[in-house]
Simulated assay, not measured.
Amino acid sequence: MNAVVLLSTRRLPPTYFDQVREDLGDQNITIDVVGWVAPSAWVADKVNTFTLIGPGRMPAQPAPEPEPAVEASDEAPDAVIAPEAVAAPETVVADEAKIAPAAAEVAAAGSSSAAPSAAAPTAAPAAAKPRPTGAKRVVKAVEWRARKARKVAGRMLPKAIKASAPVKFLRGQRATNDLGKNYWERVLSRRDVMATIDKADVVVALDAGAIWAGWNLGQRKASTPVVLGLPAARREFDQLKAPAGNG
């Protein structure tokens, strides 16, 4: 069984590893990933190992789906009412005759004893904060204009500069270089990562941030192909399979 190590600085979805197996032409291939960022979801069922060497944490395993509830097939029996619990019609009429006068007396007593409540005094509105006058007013105005000028200057000029193609290119190159160096330093400092790479048949740098690590690994491990991208990895695996097929 062939083994491949993927070097990545981007967030990979679980479905990506299905595409890797399809592009490499081997569904039984062993995939180990050295990632700078965690995958977008749980990938333990997609890869052999996923070693996170950058910031963040790995996604938690999803909770298992609850089993469907079993519905009872038998209906509950109707409630049985004891004959002695049912009141006779004449008893109900007598009780209603007793309740009606009592309710009228209670209503009359409540209406006579009710008195209009006194209106609660309302709180006085808070006094408005006095505005600055004289020299304080001039100082406040100058400070406000200075803050506004700084906001306008910081919003207009940098935006025009940042939108230019040369600045975008230089910033992108600098960010990629910094990420590439940090990624390689982390790979080199992890014994478990280097041990995984030593067992690989092919090492693949998937993106620009992993190129520097791939180049350094290629200088250190001449016996293991280190390539950029899956098409180049496919050619290496085809060459590994070729001697067995010709024999």
Rank of each mutant, 00 (worst) to 15 (best):
S164Y: 02
F17N: 01
A126I: 09
N2M: 08
P121T: 12
A165T: 14
D26E: 13
V204S: 02
K46L: 10
V202R: 00
G134M: 03
L24R: 08
R145A: 15
S111K: 11
L52A: 09
S164Q: 05
G214Q: 00
P77H: 06
V20W: 01
Q173E: 15
A79E: 13
M156Q: 10
M156K: 06
T224H: 02
D45A: 13
G56N: 05
L52I: 08
V193Q: 02
R155F: 04
A205I: 06
A195I: 00
S164K: 04
P62S: 04
P83A: 11
V226A: 05
P132F: 03
R235F: 12
T51D: 15
G218Q: 02
R220K: 14
K129G: 09
Q173R: 14
V204K: 01
Q239L: 12
D201W: 10
P121Y: 07
G247W: 01
A141E: 05
V202Q: 03
F17G: 00
K221M: 08
R21F: 07
V92K: 00
V70G: 09
R174Q: 10
Q19I: 10
D23W: 09
A210N: 01
R131W: 11
N182Q: 12
W36K: 05
D192L: 02
K162S: 11
R57F: 04
A60Q: 14
T176V: 08
Q19V: 09
L170K: 14
